[in-house]
């Protein structure tokens, strides 16, 4: 190879930045959607209604048993068929990510809720709160402190996982880097640069998670 050519990266920066925007946007939407759906699933799993709990467990274990790529393929072909019209890869992938992440986030939320001492539940109910009020006002605020570092860690994993949209040719950061690498025939430069960017962003996320978790330990 003939030296490390930085100019090819500089020329492609706007294109790469757009790709990074999609990766980050996808991460944000999947995180918010996954947390919301995950919360509902976690509450269903902890509920007194056995059927609801079993359904939620099936959902979680089902999604956790299969690779994300397969889930992406499923939704890529399923969503347009269900809607009866083509919707573009982005929407299919968004739904796939939200549903997939919900399975993982629900486990984090469930563990967090279970870690709240039973006396808190009982006290909430004794003060006349309904089940959902007890969860919203007493259990979740306490569980949140425990869950925060794990949520951030899962967010870092999720950000890395967005690179898998490569398989349906969405132009995220990874795919954009790959496109430039192949069209400019500068494979080494582009992939090394992509690795550095992912490394820097994920390290920042991991450091945040560590800080959150050591803050919590100090508070106790």
């Amino acid at each position: 190879m003939s030296g490390f050519d930085v100019s090819v990266i500089l020329d492609a920066l706007p294109f790469l930045a757009k790709g990074l925007g999609l990766s980050l946007g996808l991460t944000a939407i999947a995180m918010v959607g996954g947390l919301a759906l995950g919360l509902i699933i976690a509450i269903a799993r902890l509920s007194r209604f056995r059927t609801l709990g079993t359904l939620a467990a099936l959902y979680v274990n089902g999604f956790r048993a299969v690779p994300l790529i397969l889930v992406i393929f499923w939704f890529y072909f399923l969503v347009p068929l269900l809607l009866g019209r083509p919707v573009g890869a982005l929407y299919s992938v968004l739904i796939a990510f939200v549903m997939f992440e919900a399975a993982y986030y629900s486990e984090i939320i469930r563990a967090g809720m279970k870690s709240v001492r039973p006396g808190q539940w009982q006290a909430a109910q004794a003060s006349g709160m309904t089940y959902l009020q007890a969860i919203r006002l007493v259990v979740l605020p306490q569980a949140l402190r425990k869950m925060a570092p794990l949520m951030v860690t899962q967010g870092v994993v999720l950000f890395q996982d967005t690179s898998l949209v490569y398989v349906v040719s969405l132009h995220d950061f990874m795919t954009s880097a790959s496109i430039v690498a192949n069209t400019q025939n500068r494979i080494v430069e582009l992939y090394v640069f992509a690795a550095l960017v992912y490394f820097a962003l994920c390290t920042a996320g991991s450091t945040l998670a560590q800080r959150l978790s050591s803050n919590r330990q100090r508070a106790h």
Binding site: V156, I187, Y191, V192, S206
Partner: peptide, 21 residues
């Protein structure tokens, strides 16, 4: 830290396309 903070897909590409170069 190095192996945990780079997506596996990119790691495969690095081993497959970049390392031989």
């Amino acid at each position: 830290n190095l192996f945990r903070n780079v997506p596996l897909l990119l790691q495969m590409f690095l081993w497959f396309f970049v390392v031989p170069e």
